[in-house]
Nucleic acid binder design. Structure first.
Lengths: 215, 215
DNA sequence: CATGATTGGATAGTGACACTCTCCAATGAA
DNA sequence: TTCATTGGAGAGTGTCACTATCCAATCATG
């Protein structure tokens, strides 16, 4: 497959594919001559994953590069590779850790996690991970606005998250090779996020209608 | 409170506050003299909400303006105001509705919603709403990558969403005045999104450790 | 073999977005 | 009186994900 064909099959413009190649999101094709390279199914699959990460998952290009690098780093065991790939995902706002509000938020989050018996992970998780930082920020924002965000308020969300994680990992385990599992973990983590958020919005609308609808 | 004090209390620079005033995200202060205006607690509260929407919720400024306008439109009943405010929230990627993949995704989504008995909402929900469009896009992306996204795969997420919606609306109903409820609905919808996503990531790490950890 | 189109590669430009900077005349505080 | 500050307006900045333009080398066709 040449670049133009890769573009046709994927629906991504050649200019954008060249950009991804330059940025290292897509491995270079097999050089056929000095001015021609050949691409195969793996490039098409990778290209679709990149598009999904960037367009649906809104992952920044630089972050996507790190995630994809972790996908291919076979110096790590399965669990760690998965952790690094997924741990690199979010774009943490990570603003100034201004003592008063953030400290309380951190305390709430720690209380929640220990109440759930969620232990610190080995590499990319636990305090310091992007997800942890994002969580502290969000709880801090809720607290600053005087919206409920005690451990008890957060618990239902954590329980839902725990159930979903089981579902997610079940989906991941449908794949056989470790490589496919790690790629699936990244794709499913990112692509199910808009699914979950959209469904929550729709469900809120349903519930709001049930409670407040007049006519 | 003058602008400089509003800035100090909120931690937002005067330049940014001026920008929000210009953009209509913040109502103008009470004019004291030709060159001085006074701001009060309501401005501080609104400013914090704006920052939460934009920074934590990543809502574009133009969208935030619409949401805030819906907050204040008292020509509508409670349920509709809530629907418009929340319905205006997401920034739907809404790419090209290329027939083959998107049609199948739409079909899956419709099957899911009808299986759940989720009816089309009155105003901003149902087919055509941002949340619905985002859901179709995400399912389409999953399908294009050959990841599981049948109705049966989506059901656990929908069930979790339904439970969370009950939790969310319970939180909203803690507030007494309709105005406070609508504002709370917006804030909680947006601010609990990163909470939910972070918790899912952390829960995935837990579950992954439980299943795959070596040492 | 001539010739026009295509390719990979490099560089620069675009448009959207969320600020942020610079001025300015009017004012307020010392 | 005098000088820093204020609100207001417009232009400028930095980032980001592309996108457009060139270019020489090469391929495909007649």
């Amino acid at each position: 497959m040449k670049l133009a064909e890769l573009s046709e099959h994927s629906g991504v413009s050649t200019a954008t594919i060249k950009y991804y190649l330059r940025e290292g999101l897509l491995p270079p094709g097999r050089r056929v001559t000095a001015t021609r390279s050949a691409y195969d199914e793996s490039h098409l699959q990778r290209l679709r994953l990149v598009r999904a990460l960037i367009q649906v998952g809104r992952v920044p290009v630089a972050t996507a590069r790190e995630v994809l690098a972790a996908l291919e780093d076979d110096s790590l065991d399965h669990h760690h590779r998965l952790g690094i790939a997924v741990g690199a995902l979010p774009s943490p706002p990570e603003p100034d850790p201004e003592a008063p509000a953030v400290d309380r938020a951190r305390h709430t989050v720690d209380a929640l996690l220990s109440r759930l018996n969620w232990l610190e992970g080995p590499h990319a998780w636990g305090p310091g991970s992007p997800a942890y930082g994002t969580l502290v920020d969000a709880v801090g924002a809720l607290a600053r606005l005087n919206y409920p965000c005690d451990v008890d308020d957060l618990l239902p969300y954590a329980r839902a998250a725990a159930e979903l994680a089981v579902t997610d990992l079940d989906l991941v385990e449908r794949y056989e090779s470790p490589d496919a599992q790690v790629e699936a973990a990244v794709a499913l983590t990112v692509l199910y996020e808009p699914v979950l958020l959209s469904l929550r919005r729709i469900a809120e609308a349903q519930e709001s209608g049930r409670r407040f609808a007049s006519g």
